[in-house]
């Protein structure tokens, strides 16, 4: 099985006080810690497990800046065989449709059985790129995959529906699957792995290498554009309970006692 995994290098924002940047269209990213998109971490793990069981190769691909190398190197350290990064300032600020288009150009040049993406990116959360990519590649897809069983020339997967329900889907290869969290337990990077990764190939491509012209990418040909980004202020949203932990605890107890819950 030759597997391609699309990975994105994203800022970790859960515990950070975010600010909007000068453009007013995105967050200020300086000082933030970046890592692999959570869903992609599960996708990379799944690909490596399939390779370990059935043989073949794992290639990780990203569209992003040079900083993404950190994420690519970590994927290589875990067991991916090679990495490809597409970097071109003409792609910056492109929408997910353009990202899918660029990825499809990279993938079309390769031989593969399976393309894995995350179910969604944690920064923009479009849940778009995977299935859009399948359409551009002219191959089938299924999303939110929680289990993969490899058969001859096809896979049988469980995909997640609402409320804990799952659907069993059979799909012909080559195909695109978008991976849901919890499908496996992603491994940690080992020291050995990091050493090996240094010797693995990391290719950098530009639009010219892909035969894509400026008018096929960039803001102009994007479907959507972020016009403004904003953060609602907390005071307007919720009644805050303030004070020392003991004071807060007393107030919470008062509130729930008032509701007859204690």
């Amino acid at each position: 099985m030759d597997i391609i995994v699309c990975v994105k290098h994203v800022p970790e924002v859960a515990e950070v006080d975010l600010r909007i940047d000068e453009s007013g269209r995105d967050i200020e990213k300086t000082g933030l810690v970046f890592d692999i998109n959570e869903w992609d971490d599960y996708a990379v793990e799944e690909a490596i497990r399939i390779k370990e069981e059935y043989g073949g190769s794992v290639t990780v691909v990203t569209v992003g800046s040079e900083d993404s190398d950190r994420t690519l190197r970590r994927c290589l350290a875990k067991g991916a065989d090679r990495a490809i990064r597409v970097t071109d300032r003409r792609i910056v600020a492109s929408d997910p449709f353009i990202v899918a288009k660029v990825l499809s150009k990279v993938i079309k040049k390769m031989t593969f059985d399976l393309v894995l993406t995350g179910a969604q990116s944690s920064d923009y959360g479009y849940a778009f790129v995977g299935p859009a990519l399948s359409s551009l590649l002219g191959i089938p897809h299924t999303t939110l995959v929680k289990k993969i069983v490899i058969k001859d020339g096809r896979v049988v997967v469980n995909r997640e529906l609402e409320g804990g329900l799952e659907e069993v889907v059979e799909i012909k290869l080559p195909a695109v699957l978008t991976i849901q969290t919890g499908i496996n337990e992603p491994r940690y990077v080992s020291i050995m792995g990091i050493k090996k990764a240094m010797k693995k190939e990391l290719r950098v491509l530009t639009l010219d290498d892909l035969g894509l012209s400026v008018d096929e990418v960039g803001v102009e040909s994007s479907w959507i554009q972020i016009e403004e980004m904003y953060i609602p202020s907390i005071e307007r949203r919720v009644e805050l309970i303030r004070g020392s932990p003991e004071e807060v605890a007393s107030k919470i107890v008062e509130i729930i006692k008032g509701r007859g819950l204690l």
């Binding site: 800022p11 975010l18 016009e227």
Partner: peptide, 15 residues
């Protein structure tokens, strides 16, 4: 739409 796990909101203009 929301972005960054719901911490920010974005106004999106469609082509």
């Amino acid at each position: 739409r929301q972005m960054y796990g719901g911490k920010t909101y974005a106004k999106i203009k469609v082509k």
